[in-house]
């Protein structure tokens, strides 16, 4: 059962206090988008074995959504950060690259 530190209130909490929200940094496609774009937004997920960016809500705490970078195999947590961004912070990406040299990057 994993633990994450909520970047908004600073509490380190266990999984039972969190609600999972799937893959992070999805770009919403609304009216006017192609079928392929909409399908990709609604259904296609990376589901990687390794570095993953995901959404979590501190449901039993401050109620805020935040994002986490985590290794889906070892459960190492590289970092958490507020949800108000379209891509992971550069320093976090650099940290992950240093720890996982073969990682291809988040895109």
């Amino acid at each position: 059962m994993l633990t994450l530190t909520c970047p908004l209130c600073g509490a380190t909490v266990e999984e039972t206090e969190l609600a999972p929200g799937g893959e992070a940094h999805l770009k919403r496609f609304g009216p006017g988008s192609s079928d392929a774009e909409f399908e990709s937004y609604m259904f296609n997920r990376k589901n990687p074995k390794g570095v993953h960016f995901e959404r979590w809500r501190h449901a039993y705490g401050c109620g805020k959504w935040f994002l986490a970078a985590r290794d889906t195999v070892t459960w190492e947590v590289f970092g958490t950060y507020p949800a108000q961004t379209t891509e992971p912070p550069a320093d976090l990406v650099a940290k992950i690259k240093a720890k996982r040299p073969t990682w291809e990057g988040y895109k």
């Binding site: 609600a19 929200g21 809500r57 805020k64 959504w65 108000q84």
Partner: peptide
């Protein structure tokens, strides 16, 4: 309520 907060916090912040 969670659904509303999700969109407010993560899409239209």
């Amino acid at each position: 309520h969670g659904h509303m907060e999700d969109w407010l916090q993560c899409e239209w912040w």
